[in-house]
Simulated assay, not measured.
Amino acid sequence: MEMEDPPCTRLFPDLPDEIAVRIIARIPRSHHRSLCYVSKSWRSFLLSRLLFTLRSSVTHSTEPTICLNIRTQTNQSPWLVLNQGRSHPDYLPSPPLSTVGSACATVGPFVFVVGGSLSSVPSNVVQILDLRIGGQWFPGPRMSTAREFAAASFLNGRLYAIGGCLSSSEGWAESLNPFDKNPQWVPIDSPVHVREKWMHGCVVLSGQVLAMADRGGVAYDPGQDTGSCSWGPVPKRLDLGWKGRAVVVNGILYTYDYMGKIKGYDPVMDKWRPVMGVDKQLPKFLCGATLANLHGVLCVIWEQRRNGGKQKEMMVDWAGIRVTDLRNEGLHGSILWWETVALGMPYGSAIAHCVVAEF
Results as ranks from 00 to 15, higher is better:
residue 145 T to H: 03
residue 204 V to R: 13
residue 344 G to F: 01
residue 211 A to P: 10
residue 36 C to K: 11
residue 228 S to H: 15
residue 47 L to A: 00
residue 135 G to P: 01
residue 237 R to Q: 15
residue 232 G to L: 08
residue 122 P to C: 15
residue 266 D to F: 07
residue 220 Y to S: 07
residue 223 G to Y: 02
residue 42 W to M: 12
residue 54 L to R: 05
residue 201 G to E: 14
residue 95 P to A: 03
residue 181 K to Y: 08
residue 31 H to W: 13
residue 290 T to M: 10
residue 315 M to Y: 12
residue 280 K to Q: 15
residue 6 P to K: 11
residue 351 I to R: 06
residue 129 L to P: 14
residue 298 L to F: 02
residue 275 V to A: 11
residue 225 D to L: 10
residue 160 Y to R: 01
residue 235 P to Y: 00
residue 346 P to G: 02
residue 346 P to H: 00
residue 13 P to M: 05
residue 84 Q to T: 02
residue 234 V to M: 04
residue 100 V to I: 09
residue 350 A to M: 15
residue 335 I to N: 01
residue 338 W to N: 15
residue 244 G to W: 11
residue 291 L to D: 11
residue 344 G to A: 00
residue 262 I to T: 05
residue 277 G to K: 11
residue 112 F to P: 02
residue 2 E to N: 13
residue 69 N to W: 09
residue 356 V to Q: 09
residue 273 R to F: 12
residue 204 V to A: 02
residue 15 L to Y: 13
residue 61 S to E: 08
residue 101 G to Q: 09
residue 26 R to V: 07
residue 90 D to N: 04
residue 287 C to A: 15
residue 26 R to A: 10
residue 188 I to T: 02
residue 56 S to F: 14
residue 320 G to E: 03
residue 78 P to G: 00
residue 180 D to R: 10
residue 257 D to R: 07
residue 18 E to W: 09
residue 217 G to K: 00
residue 3 M to T: 15
residue 143 M to F: 10
residue 116 G to L: 11
residue 206 S to Q: 04
residue 12 F to M: 04
residue 194 V to R: 01
residue 346 P to T: 02
residue 284 K to Y: 12
residue 276 M to S: 13
residue 309 G to L: 05
residue 209 V to P: 07
residue 207 G to I: 02
residue 331 L to D: 12
residue 300 V to H: 07
residue 147 R to C: 01
residue 269 M to W: 06
residue 132 R to H: 11
residue 81 V to I: 03
residue 311 Q to H: 05
residue 105 A to D: 00
residue 90 D to I: 00
residue 144 S to W: 14
residue 111 V to Q: 04
residue 70 I to V: 09
residue 145 T to P: 11
residue 103 A to L: 04
residue 154 F to L: 10
residue 295 H to D: 12
residue 46 L to N: 12
residue 51 L to C: 02
residue 219 A to S: 06
residue 212 M to V: 09
residue 36 C to S: 05
residue 96 P to W: 01
residue 225 D to M: 07
residue 59 T to K: 13
residue 261 K to Q: 13
residue 325 D to W: 01
residue 162 I to E: 03
residue 312 K to I: 11
residue 210 L to G: 03
